[in-house]
Nucleic acid binder design. Structure first.
Lengths: 249, 249
DNA sequence: CGGTTCCTTGAGAGAACTCAACGTCGGTGG
DNA sequence: CCACCGACGTTGAGTTCTCTCAAGGAACCG
């Protein structure tokens, strides 16, 4: 909410030199559509953990955000004060999609690590969607991808399956070709997102380490047995969802 | 799949006399938008349980469907053959939204009870979305509502909370003012959807009956203690999602 | 160098699952 | 007409997985 009204930076971004690169929402669209989109982007700005939220649940949805760098989590807070993390948004991801059809944000958003987001006024998004079919399609696409991810996690999977799917999903979305995955969020956040106790997340990672599937060091995991991890994650179906973003027309 | 290519009925529906009435996706839009929508509706047709699916996961998404009457379930089948129900679609609900941004259906759809659906060719939907902002908004709205519902159920709630939320959600979506709720699907389907064993669903309903909260008779439940049921369901937040469809502009 | 947060490991408890059995209902065929 | 069969709903008993509670160590910060 603090940032919504008072961005601390006001430089106009240029999509062609964005660090999110091809992982961006706009990846692969025509130059014309990209320029339309770029025109709609008002500014980009930094977001830091602990410095207040990007926006809070119930706030008037003024903007749509696009993660340039870092990691943004969205969450709801129930009346008992318990946080429920709805998703982690990585570079190229949109934040605030679920407010497109409403006036207000149904969830809050905050940085997990020092991050940067592009700001797109909501009115510009709506206008753009009617002008550019490809961007409209992308919006629907991302929204339905989020839907699929949510549905995937709503299954009754074991802790091992959930963690395996999460690791693979993050690896895929971060787009690195290497086996190393840096998880910027805390174990508590991971557990909250996967609906597991923090301790269970730790235990599972330890167990997978003993089995030679993973290696854990600080916040970085190294995948040692990719086949086994995939086998574990397969029923959840989370990884297949995030990886086809770039492919779809 | 069978129906996708060979509808057994070909009568052009008229939105103004539809049994789904105001609960429909189009509820409350201008007459002009409604007519545009009605033009896009190709036909309506019956769907029966056990007679094959409306469409299957992986099928080319040719149409969007709108439930006129009955109940349609959408589901995925994992490689072990286990069905995972993603949602129940009641009169006025759209089926196939998650395929809007793709070529193929990510899930299958089948009737839970004898039902009727309107058929809208996918190409017409896309065209309509760019022409009519209100219909586009409704599409995004419904998609994000489904997202919210999925996220609600992904929480780690107790069996009692899940069942309570489900009953209230169904009651609200069926739109009846009475305390009676007919659940057309089997206990197995309910359990599958809520990620509970069939037996657990039974036990919970029995327990709620003993507590004087519910009364169960065949497939119809009667809510005796609405306050208690709401209290139980509240943390899940499922009921609040489905009930504001008619309100939003 | 205290204080805080995060990560990790252990022990016990509880909720839901699995396995199993039984009653009911509706359809089928002898 | 009735026996049989399968699907569904319900209830009981034991098991398992994850959570809760508890504690210790490591990293970070004022």
């Amino acid at each position: 909410m603090a940032f919504d009204s008072a961005p601390s930076s006001r430089c106009k971004p240029n999509c062609s030199i964005c660090p999110a690169g091809s992982r961006c929402f706009t990846g692969g669209v025509s130059m014309e559509a990209l320029n339309q989109w770029n025109d709609a982007v008002q500014t980009h700005m930094p977001v830091f953990p602990g410095n207040g939220a990007l926006f809070s649940a119930g706030d008037v949805a003024e903007n749509l955000y696009l993660v340039r760098a870092g990691c943004i989590k969205t969450y709801t807070v129930d009346q008992d004060g318990n946080e429920r993390i709805r998703g982690f948004h990585l570079p190229g991801d949109l934040v605030g999609l679920d407010a497109l059809a409403r006036d207000r944000h149904p969830c809050g958003a905050a940085a997990v690590e020092p991050s940067q987001v592009c700001v797109i006024p909501r009115a510009r998004v709506a206008a753009l969607a009617t002008k550019s079919p490809i961007l409209l399609q992308r919006l629907l696409q991302r929204t339905s991808h989020e839907l699929s991810a949510a549905l995937s996690l709503s299954g009754d999977y074991t802790a091992e399956q959930r963690v395996a799917a999460f690791v693979l999903s993050m690896a895929s979305r971060l787009g690195g070709a290497s086996d190393r995955v840096r998880l910027p969020m805390t174990r508590r956040d991971i557990g909250n997102y996967l609906r597991l106790a923090t301790e269970t997340v730790c235990r599972v990672i330890t167990r997978l380490e003993h089995q030679g599937v993973l290696e854990s060091r600080d916040k970085t995991l190294t995948v040692r047995d990719h086949a086994r991890l995939t086998e574990l994650a397969e029923p959840v179906g989370l990884s297949s969802i995030s990886s086809d973003w770039a492919i779809a027309a």
